[in-house]
């Protein structure tokens, strides 16, 4: 069983305590977990910590092994962490960027295996037509797709995606989420995704982890986790959870609370 367990997690950004006492209950294999919350709540800090790239207090276990003690190489093989920033605009072509993501840390991998994995990734993400274009000539959305390709090419079982669809138009957003879901199910792994769009998260994620006020406010299936109460607490908005004509839940907002804190 591949799983990421979190207990008692505390995160700091500099000397500011960002999140404290975070615990994620165990979720079944193949789950998509949406990490939601207002700006600056610590979603990115959390994902970085879960990737083993940022400091944390408390415990994160990966496959029943403390993440802290895991050698970087092995950790990077199991976890695919997509940073929030887009790949830089360089003269590197997309194909090289993806191949180097494999080659940099897996010198043992045979050329054929790398080529096959790269081929499949470009095919799957539908970006074959970008393969031989320099990153400097691609749009932000296209670079975001290349960044995602760099992460999924290594077939990690745990995907940690920090706003993977922030630069994409609607069609590509849906496409990416479909691919991510399929991959997570196939790998029988877990995918934690920081998202801004509540409705997309409700539609695609099996679980929602909603953060606010420096703590985890709710964790559970979308309908159970998302209530007018936690919406008020997390986002300081007045909202309702409605059901569409096909029976899917969605959030309607009615306005902001008066006590909107200073940005």
């Amino acid at each position: 069983m591949t799983g990421l367990r979190i207990k008692n997690l505390g995160l700091q950004y500099g000397s500011n305590v960002v999140l404290s006492d975070v615990a994620f209950p165990e979720t079944p294999e193949g789950s998509l977990i949406g990490v939601l919350g207002p700006n600056g709540v610590g979603k990115s800090t959390l994902l970085r910590a879960m990737a083993g790239l940022g400091p944390y207090r408390g415990d994160i276990w990966l496959d029943d092994e403390p993440l802290r003690d895991m050698p970087m190489r092995r950790r990077a093989g199991l976890i695919g962490y997509l940073p929030q920033e887009l790949p830089q605009r360089t003269t590197l072509v997309a194909y090289e960027a993806v191949v180097s993501a494999c080659r940099a840390v897996r010198p043992d991998m045979a050329t054929q295996a790398v080529e096959d994995a790269t081929e499949e990734t470009f095919e799957r993400l539908g970006i074959r037509h970008l393969a031989f274009k320099a990153l400097s000539t691609l749009s932000g959305g296209q670079r975001q797709m290349v960044g995602l390709a760099q992460i999924v090419v290594r077939r990690p079982t745990i995907l940690l995606l920090d706003e993977p669809i922030s630069a994409l138009d609607l069609r590509w957003q849906i496409g990416v989420l479909d691919v991510v879901r399929t991959l997570t199910r196939q790998q029988r792994g877990h995918c934690f995704m920081a998202l801004h769009d509540i409705n997309i998260a409700m539609r695609y994620c099996d679980y929602i982890a909603l953060f606010g006020d420096g703590k985890l406010l709710a964790f559970g299936p979308p309908l159970a986790a998302m209530t007018p109460d936690v919406l008020r607490q997390a986002y300081r908005i007045e909202g309702r959870i409605e059901t569409c004509s096909r029976g899917k839940p969605f959030v309607v907002t009615d306005g902001v609370l008066a006590d909107l804190p200073a940005y």
């Binding site: 790239l53 990077a76 830089q88 960027a97 180097s100 993501a101 940099a104 840390v105 960044g147």
Partner: peptide, 20 residues
């Protein structure tokens, strides 16, 4: 060589691949 190439995509990405 390959680590350096992967670094061109950005430090955040290289770190994520497991490059120290």
């Amino acid at each position: 060589m390959w680590k350096m190439t992967s670094l061109r995509g950005g430090e955040g990405f290289a770190l994520s691949f497991g490059v120290s």
